[in-house]
C-alpha cells in the first residue's frame, strides 16, 4: 500500500461521535468485562504497591491478559471494522501481552528481590491516574458513564497503567516492554487530536513524563560528574 501518500486525517475514517459511540456499544456488548478489567486493575495496583519478588509478577500477568483482551476483542473485533489499521493495532496489543507475560511473568530476573528496586513515585501516580482519573476525562467531553474508557477493556488506560507499572520496576528489558505502550500513547493522542477531543494531549504528555522519569537520573548523574 502506498502509505506515504496518506496523511493522518486519511487514516481516521470516523467522526468523534462514532468513536465515542464505539465505546458505548463496546462496553454494553462485552459487559461485564469493563468491571472485571477495572477489578483486575485495582488488584494490580495493590499487589504492585505492596509486593516484591514473586508476587510482583501478578500485576504484570494481569495487565498482560488485559493487553491480549484489548488487542483481540476491542481492536480486532470492534475497532478494525471502522478503521483498517485496527488489525495491526490488535496484533501489536496481543504481542505486548505475550511479551509482558513471557518477560515479566516467567523470567527469573523479576523473581529475585534485588532486581526489583522499585521507584514507586511517578509510576504509582501514573497508575492511579490511569485507573481512576483517566476514565472520568470522558465526562468532560460530555460522554455518558457507560461509554467511559476503563483499564483492562479500553486501550488508553491500559497502555497508560502499563507505563506506570513499568516505572515501578527495574528490569533490563523494560525498554522493550515500553515500545508498544509508548507508540500507542502517540497513536491515540494523534487520533484524539484529529477528532478535536479536548483531552488529546494527555497520552502524548504521558510519553514525555515516562521518558523524562527514565532519562532524568542519567542526565542529573552526568551533570553531577561534570
Amino acid at each position: 500500500m502506498d502509505l506515504l501518500s496518506y496523511s493522518l486525517v486519511d487514516l481516521i475514517p470516523f467522526s468523534r461521535e462514532t468513536y465515542f459511540r464505539l465505546f458505548e456499544r463496546y462496553n454494553i456488548g462485552v459487559w461485564p468485562a469493563p468491571i472485571i478489567g477495572l477489578a483486575m486493575g485495582l488488584t494490580a495496583l495493590f499487589t504492585a504497591r505492596r509486593a516484591d519478588g514473586w508476587v510482583l509478577r501478578a500485576p504484570f500477568l494481569l495487565t498482560a491478559a488485559c493487553w491480549i483482551w484489548v488487542g483481540w476483542v476491542f481492536q480486532i473485533h470492534w475497532y478494525a471494522p471502522l478503521s483498517w489499521p485496527g488489525i495491526y493495532f490488535g496484533m501489536g496489543f496481543v504481542l505486548q501481552g505475550v511479551l509482558m507475560a513471557v518477560v515479566l511473568g516467567w523470567g527469573p530476573i523479576l523473581g529475585s528481590p534485588e532486581a526489583t528496586d522499585r521507584n514507586h513515585g511517578p509510576g504509582l501516580w501514573i497508575l492511579l491516574f490511569a485507573l481512576a482519573l483517566q476514565p472520568l476525562l470522558g465526562l468532560l467531553s460530555g460522554r455518558p458513564w457507560y461509554g467511559l474508557e476503563v483499564f483492562g477493556s479500553a486501550p488508553d488506560p491500559t497502555a497508560l497503567a502499563t507505563l506506570g507499572l513499568l516505572l515501578m520496576i527495574r528490569h533490563p528489558l523494560r525498554w522493550l516492554l515500553s515500545i508498544i505502550p509508548l507508540a500507542w500513547c502517540l497513536i491515540s493522542g494523534a487520533t484524539l487530536w484529529v477528532l478535536s477531543v479536548p483531552t488529546w494531549p494527555v497520552m502524548p504528555l504521558a510519553v514525555v513524563l515516562y521518558l523524562g522519569v527514565i532519562v532524568w537520573p542519567w542526565v542529573s548523574g552526568r551533570s553531577q560528574l561534570e
Partner: peptide, 13 residues
C-alpha cells in the same frame, strides 16, 4: 460517504 457513513453496527446511527 467518507466518515459520514462509517458508523459500524450502531443501530441509532
Amino acid at each position: 460517504t467518507w466518515i459520514s457513513f462509517n458508523v459500524g453496527g450502531d443501530p441509532v446511527a
